[in-house]
Design a protein around this nucleic acid. Structure first.
Lengths: 124, 124
DNA sequence: AATAAATACAGTAATCGTTATTGATTTGAC
DNA sequence: GTCAAATCAATAACGATTACTGTATTTATT
């Protein structure tokens, strides 16, 4: 993979926020510095960085895909009202061996998401 | 919600299989018995039944949304090669209180998905 | 049973997130 | 610097899902 300043900028944005932006939000943010950036470029580089494990893809079940610059194993809470994605500090699960034993597979990753109402939305 | 034979048939299909079909697969299956069924009807009823908690929506992160007629708490393994969804018999997690304490929220549900290669695909 | 209101339907058009294509530009090895 | 490979911007195409419209079915009321 060759260097590109667009990908560099994208990674900087993703690692510098905890907001778990969507492709479009990243696009809007990148346009501030580079108004000529293309949405296609955003998608292509999100796919590339996800593939190499540099960033993490979060499929929320509720709206479009979110991305996280932090790839340490951690889990998320998603508010069903406002759609915001929150980081959790739960201990990583240790179920890989159990799953592999049960259905004879090779587990490479897992994803745990909690749904409900966040602090702000539950009091409305 | 009024009765409809289309929704009845859909529920029967979903509860009678462990294949976790997509909206389109359900549509194709339903057309066998009722060639006039509309894809819009399938989507509308999937949304209705998901909302009432009668069925379960599985967002695989890899292709379009799958549905499960079994709503008992259980988890899934998804093969990154062939896309097939497998049921797991893991013990339900008990992390609701912990999550609610950590970020002051109201957890109503959670979803745990393992990714990797299934038995068939790992040996290719 | 007849009627009316609410709900659901089939069929189809529109929307929206994402992917693919194109020809121009940038990067990196020589 | 030269050239092939990788990346880009711009835009068209795609596929899953949603919205719309006029018709049919269901349910409640008489």
């Amino acid at each position: 993979m060759n260097y590109s300043k667009q990908r560099e900028a994208m990674l900087k944005i993703l690692c510098g926020t905890k907001t778990h932006p969507t492709a479009n939000e990243i696009y809007l943010e990148m346009r501030k510095a580079d108004p000529k950036i293309s949405l296609g470029t955003v998608y292509r580089n999100l796919a590339l960085l996800t593939e190499t494990g540099t960033i993490m893809r979060i499929d929320t079940n509720h709206d479009s895909v979110h991305y996280d610059g932090c790839t340490d194993t951690h889990y998320h809470f998603i508010c069903e009202k406002c759609g915001k994605v929150y980081d959790l500090r739960l201990e990583p699960l240790k179920l890989k061996a159990e799953v592999e034993a049960e259905i004879d597979c090779e587990v490479s990753d897992h994803m745990l998401i909690f749904y409900g109402k966040c602090s702000k939305c539950k009091s409305l």
